[in-house]
Design a protein around this nucleic acid. Structure first.
Length: 518
RNA sequence: GGCGCUUUCGUCUAGCGGCUAGGACACAUGCCUCUCACGCAUGGAACACGGGUUCGAUUCCCGUAGGCGCUACCA
């Protein structure tokens, strides 16, 4: 194991959109593979035919493309260990199930789901294991001949793993150290179902990881209780010497309240839990995604990477390359992390501010276009430059709150006045009241007339004319001028705004305000 | 219920026997100022509890309590 190449895999089920926790698991696998010069494999675990959701596989692939997480082998990436879709590996599993059967490590059972449910209701804490298997309808109680007769007669059956009780099974977890579970609490897990000729997760997982020469299994903590079962399977196959090492990651928890993060939390608190927008083919429901909500992929990656791991120093902003370099699996925290989406917004802001105004202007121009405003990226970039350091008010369950501009889309509600002149003024607005008193209209008329004489309407050009007038007249025109051009107490520096709007528009807005407010 | 994992500011976390327990997000205040801000500065805020081990425990061990997960012919 020491000198073999690192090979890890991310193996989702195509049962719906990829959960953000799954994205983090994939990211950690990616970081680990890259930093060891290893390979990352993309496998589809579609052994439950009932839960298959069309479009899910493409969705997952598209999500990773967007995030910049690249795979080396697997579904849609090729490789020598295919097929990488478990539903296409029936023959392989069948062969290995037979191997277990032949070795007496597994047995055939005919108990139907209904029979088992009845049993569970009748017997408290019923478990299909060494203590009960001799009372059930299976190969061990029916005998070989009867078993073969039933199979020949088309009776559906499953193959169960025969677990020897009373053994302490140890799992050496990279994150948690030695984890020990007694085999007596494990049940004789179903490994294979004749009904769809497919294995269950446990069997498929072990066979595939072995055949694909996986060296490290990095997965969510929900798998920890079944890790001993997996160890036992490796042993039963005689593969213990090449068994991968395990690392069970802590789960992502709700931002508030109890339990693990769910889709509902996102809907309730207003943040995405999926990387991309998802249209549920069954219900028609649409769930927003990080991409569609205006998150930058590098911000999502950085945010997720630090939920459960940190570089050990005070650095929080790390590029994908830096993460590859600094990530340490053994330094991952052991306890679940509450999903602090507010910090996610902060990360996005940091990355947003690292883009040039022109890049952001291009995005903003697209957004404006959807509002029916056609401007060039350069023009939009001027607005971005003036407004990207502002705060936006938003709604929460505890009422309105404020936060810094974190998304390009935050700009739009703040920037309407750049494109639309005030149509009316709120006389009760605190700022308007404070700024517009007796005589203000006359002062604004003076400023209007002064501005009318300005030839060069750039910031500098206006200053050259207006500053001396301010000095000489003693009039502080700023707030009232703001009322004229903006309509309320917000916005950028007045000269900057005025220069952006241009002389004609500025004079027009002032005339309207003077006429309206008197 | 059983089994396993886990427990440092509100949140994410640093700490790996001796620290004024550090940082970030969030929050509050001040400065700046033409509005709202940004920025800068400052501040409040944590070792779950009880036993051990030790000269000394946030740190090691054991309990208790909380949290999380698993307990399917789902992954």
């Amino acid at each position: 194991m020491i000198n073999t190449q690192v090979r890890v895999r991310f193996a989702p089920s195509p049962t719906g959109p990829l959960h953000i926790g799954g994205v983090r698991t994939a990211l950690y696998n990616y970081l680990f593979a890259r930093q060891h010069g290893g390979k990352l494999i993309f496998r589809i675990e579609d052994t439950d035919s009932n839960r298959f959701v069309p479009g899910a596989e493409d969705y997952i692939l598209e999500a990773f493309r967007w995030l910049g997480i690249q795979f080396d082998e697997g579904v849609s990436f090729g490789g020598d260990d295919g097929p990488y879709r478990q539903s296409e590996r029936r023959d392989i599993y069948k062969q290995y199930v037979q191997q277990l059967l032949d070795a007496g490590r597994a047995y055939i059972a005919f108990d139907t789901a209904e029979e088992l449910n009845a049993k569970r209701e009748a017997v408290q804490n019923f478990q299909y294991d060494a203590s009960t298997r001799m009372q059930m309808r299976n190969e061990l109680t029916l005998g070989k001949e009867e078993t073969e007769r039933l199979i020949a007669g088309g009776e559906p059956y499953v193959v169960r793993f025969l677990i020897e009780p009373g053994e302490d099974v140890h799992v050496d977890d990279i994150i948690r150290g030695d984890v020990c579970i007694n085999s007596s609490i494990l049940d004789d897990k179903v490994l294979w179902k004749s009904a769809d000729q497919l294995p269950t997760y446990h069997l498929a997982n072990i066979v595939d990881d072995h055949l694909m020469r996986i060296t490290h299994v990095i997965r969510g903590e929900e798998w920890l209780p079944s890790a001993p079962l997996h160890v036992l399977l490796y042993r039963a196959f005689g593969w213990e010497d090449t068994m991968p090492r395990f690392a069970h990651l802590p789960l992502l928890l709700k931002p508030d309240g109890k339990g693990k993060l769910s889709k509902r939390d996102g809907d309730r608190l207003g943040f995405p839990v999926f990387p991309l927008e998802w249209h549920d083919p069954k219900t028609g429901d649409v769930s927003t995604g990080y991409r569609e909500s205006g998150y930058l992929p590098e911000a999502v990656v950085n945010f997720l990477a630090l939920l459960g791991w940190n570089p050990g120093d005070d650095q929080e902003l790390l590029s994908l390359d830096e993460l590859v370099e600094k990530f340490r699996l053994e330094k991952c925290s052991k306890n679940g992390a509450r999903f602090d989406y507010v910090k996610g917004q902060w990360f996005n802001r940091e990355y947003l501010l690292r883009h040039t105004d022109l890049e952001l202007g291009g995005e903003f121009a697209k957004l404006l276009s959807r509002e029916g405003i056609e401007v060039t990226a350069e023009r939009a970039a001027e607005v971005v430059a003036l407004m990207k350091t502002k705060v936006i008010e938003y709604q929460t369950k505890d009422g309105p709150k404020k936060r810094n501009v974190s998304f390009v889309s935050d700009l739009w509600p703040l920037c309407r006045f750049f494109f639309f002149a005030p149509q009316s003024f709120d006389a009760n607005d605190k700022f308007v009241k404070k700024s517009w008193r007796e005589g203000t209209a006359a002062e604004m008329q003076q400023l209007h007339d002064v501005l009318a004489t300005v030839e060069d309407f750039s910031v500098e050009g206006q200053k050259a004319v207006v500053d001396p007038w301010v000095e000489q007249s003693g009039i502080k025109p700023w707030n009232a001028w703001r009322v004229c051009l903006v309509g309320e107490g917000q916005g950028p520096d007045m000269y900057a705004l005025s220069a952006f709007l241009g002389k004609e528009e500025v004079l027009r807005r002032m005339e309207f305000a003077i006429a309206t407010l008197k």
